[in-house]
Design a protein around this nucleic acid. Structure first.
Lengths: 247, 247
DNA sequence: CGCGGCCTTGAGAAATGTCAACTTACGTGG
DNA sequence: CCACGTAAGTTGACATTTCTCAAGGCCGCG
């Protein structure tokens, strides 16, 4: 179940005479997207000192709702789903984290959600206390975290509106558009929208059932809006897709 | 439409020799609940310098989705609804702000939602730039804002789960319980849950229609869980209400 | 080659939405 | 002070969307 394996303990690599370039963060491909971008080159070693590089493979749950929050994470590769479970097993996916995203914004004592790896995921893990100390010492870093938090809040409010007030078709279309925008941000534009998650994840994200998602995708395909391919969807009629998504 | 009237311009009241107690914030009943609690007595005058006390009466819209965000607000009295509108008029209420709550956490350029007064509302308005300067100068204040933001985020995630995965009855019960907890925080406990908002607000908050809300309340009343009274609901069977709400 | 997981499709059920009538409460003006 | 008009709330009948349950197809892996 829980199996986040520490690959490297960077502490060993670091001593007094470190040069710029000696640390992982310097070479991080997603630094500019991540919270880390708030730190200048001279501050990166401080981050590097407390980071633990970690991987989680498919389905590994590395944040458990209700447990004491001892770590926070920054995603560098792969896709993570964040979800809440009701006592009877109903699940709501409250977010999908991709490279550059941060997990654990709420510096609270317990995790309010669970998180697991959709595909293979690379994470920077930080001890919450150590991370918190760094945040406290660096207001501009706190500021960046706050920007991330408010951005998340905006997304959450949009998601509420999506789930509360829009039809299945609108939800699916909006989801596809949003996924495409996120991939574009990370990898540049493409007509193919990668969907590493399964139908049930889309369903639990959109407040629908698998069957409704499936039927809706089929309908979009039948209408010539998209083409369904394994692990992805290709956009055939962008204008139409957007007009459904924007509603 | 827009009619937030400036009652008092505190600038005039202030000069060099101000004593503690000379300013409004000192006597604020909700200071301990609000973001302002992050500031010590010696810092309050700085807040007082930039605050504009404002009232908005029933139905006045004082934040317009999409407009440039020039002000942020702290609610001191009354109830505010925050909502997003779709182009065809569908509305999702994304939050209800009560005394102590802060509006405008996202220091973004445009408001992502609209806000209006449910009943008579008292607000502390701040120019976004001035407020931002204060935040930048005071990391502990930023920290408090961040705590507010992450708290909002937690609430939003719970709301997503509520709307996406729970039945009408569960939504209404959870709403009543949440409202009661909020009133308790502000005014102390009571079996009567004040509901200054109308059915349509509850509906738009819970992703339901007026009729479904009405029927659900009637059912809860029929089952002896609550008693419906004007502008409020009285809890008759707390255990049952909680068990429905918690699901 | 066969099994198991995921996806799709269909038929019918259930929950919720829609439309419309009616009630109630309340404020206004005769 | 009453009568009317309006807005909110409730209720009923019916429509629609989405869910549930069940069957079958596809595909990768052992």
């Amino acid at each position: 179940m829980t199996a986040t394996i520490e690959l490297t303990s960077p502490k060993a690599a670091h001593a007094c005479g470190r040069q710029p370039g000696d640390n992982y963060c310097d070479n991080c491909k997603v630094r500019s997207l991540a919270v880390c971008a708030a730190l200048g080159p001279e501050e990166l070693p401080e981050l590097d000192d407390i980071v633990h590089h970690t991987r989680a493979d498919g389905k590994t749950t590395f944040i458990h709702q209700g447990e004491t929050a001892e770590s926070v994470f920054s995603v560098t590769e792969g896709m993570v789903r964040l979800y809440k479970l009701l006592s009877d097993g109903r699940r709501q996916i409250i977010g999908v984290a991709m490279p550059g995203d941060f997990l654990g914004l709420a510096l609270h004592n317990r995790y309010g959600f669970s998180a697991d790896a959709v595909d293979d995921v690379a994470l920077c893990r930080f001890d919450r206390r150590e991370f918190d100390n760094l945040v406290t010492a660096k207001p501009h870093f706190l500021r960046r975290l706050h920007e991330f938090a408010t951005h998340e809040l905006v997304i959450a409010q949009e998601q509420m509106t999506l789930i509360g007030r829009r039809s299945a078709e609108e939800r699916v279309a909006a989801f596809l558009v949003a996924m495409r925008e996120r991939w574009t941000r990370i990898k540049g534009p493409s007509v193919t929208i990668q969907l590493p998650m399964q139908r049930i994840d889309m369903a639990d994200y959109l407040g629908l059932t698998i069957e409704t998602v499936s039927r809706t995708l089929t309908k979009l395909a039948r209408d010539g809006v998209i083409l369904i391919v394994p692990e992805a969807v290709r956009v055939l009629d962008e204008k139409k897709l957007l007009s459904i998504a924007r509603a």
